[in-house]
Amino acid sequence: MRKSLLIIFILLLVKVHSQTQSNSAIADSLYATGNYAKAINYYAEDGTLNSSLQIARAYNVIGNYEKAIVQYQSVVTENPDLQIASFELGKLLFKTKAFDDARKLFSKLVKQAQDNPEYQYYLGEVFSELDQPASSLIAYKKAVEYDSTHLRSLFKLAKYFMVKNEKNQALAYIDKGLSFYPEDVSFINLKALTLFNDNAYDKAMPLFEKVLELGETKEYVYDKLAYCYYKNWEFEKARANYRKMLEIDDGNSDTYFKLAEAYRKDKEVDSAEIYIKEAMNIQKPVFAEGYARLGSMARAREDYKSALSYYNQAHGEDPSDPSIYHNICTLVDRTSKDPNVKIEYYEKYLEKYGKLKTRYASYYSTTVTKRISQLKEEIHLNAE
């Protein structure tokens, strides 16, 4: 009798184990093929730790983050040493912008496994979102300390120092990243931008060219490269890149202005005027910049009457710009024979802009004051 009961009990255990294995296998199959809702039901029947974790993952995959977080938290509470669950929960909290909760979790994970670079990296990301840059830098640096090839941490450090205009530190991290990943377009682009911001246009130029070769054909890359060519007196190459920008967006007036400047610098004033007018046609409303540039073009041709007309129109569009009115004053000074008229314009400049403290306004005020004195001395000498 006892023997029979024992056999029955063993058979029941085998049956239960078989059903459990069956539920888990079915759930895994459903999960693997993307049938997450049914997979959750089978995992729930299975009731094991792995199934509980898989339920959280399934909710996460289908975008039901609220239920995923609750499920993860349940698993973590019952299994505080299960780092994989805490790590996945931390990433989900970061994704859903629960940054302070994510910080607490990653801080805990770092204590459990300080030498894990991914934990350090995500802790840095959380501190960055919490606007605690000093703490984020420490975390990123630790990630690199434990894994010198940790590309994302190297990139974050490089980008931070680039934005801060700390060129040497930025380049140190960029070059370290490139030593492991020489064709990484993000690092090449970051190095190009760092050198560009440091006015090292000749060094930035081949890097932007490389970025384009690697398929990063974005408008800002063409823009930066065009300016590098412009600064290097390679005007045709500059214009070619500005035209590439217009292929991407032909409604950007700034690009037409830059193209015009590349022509003007190459002493092709007529072509420059064409693109300035094109820029002004696109602008709505017409801004003072266009008229001022046309004034500059006319002045370069020594067509002072047209130049004065353009600058007056520019002043009408933007009477707050001291440089525009200063150009009007100097043109009147050049074209008028009456020193009293010249003085009248210069005095109006001081009346309008004399109290401005910007660098250019202060410089103009100094030169205007000096010129008024010269003109008054000329009047006095002529009277004698």
Rank of each mutant, 00 (worst) to 15 (best):
E129Q: 14
E166C: 05
A58F: 04
Y122I: 07
Y345D: 01
N41T: 15
D28W: 10
P133F: 07
T217P: 00
D131P: 06
V286G: 01
D321R: 06
L246F: 00
S320H: 11
E347G: 06
D254Q: 13
A58W: 03
Y121I: 07
E261S: 12
S18G: 11
C228I: 03
I276R: 03
Y256H: 06
A44I: 11
V70S: 06
V221M: 15
K15V: 14
G295P: 06
S148T: 13
E118Q: 15
D270C: 07
Y353L: 06
I276V: 15
Y360E: 14
D198W: 02
D254I: 11
P285K: 10
K305Q: 09
L93M: 05
L212F: 13
K97F: 09
E234G: 02
D81T: 14
F161K: 01
G354C: 09
N168D: 15
A134V: 14
L130P: 02
N340A: 14
L350D: 01
D254T: 14
V144W: 02
N64F: 00
K224H: 08
Y275T: 01
A314W: 07
F106L: 04
R152C: 06
N60S: 12
A272H: 02
G34R: 11
F187C: 07
Q19C: 08
L178D: 05
L157Q: 01
A85C: 09
E384Q: 14
Y310G: 02
I26L: 09
D318Y: 07
Y181L: 12
Y160G: 10
D81A: 12
L259I: 07
K370C: 07
S186W: 09
G124V: 09
S148R: 14
I10M: 12
Y222I: 03
Y122N: 09
N35G: 04
S323F: 04
I372Y: 10
P206M: 09
N41M: 11
L171Q: 04
Q21F: 11
Y311Q: 11
E234F: 02
D223W: 08
R301P: 02
S52E: 10
Y256K: 03
I26N: 05
P285G: 10
Q114L: 08
E213G: 12
Y275E: 01
N60I: 00
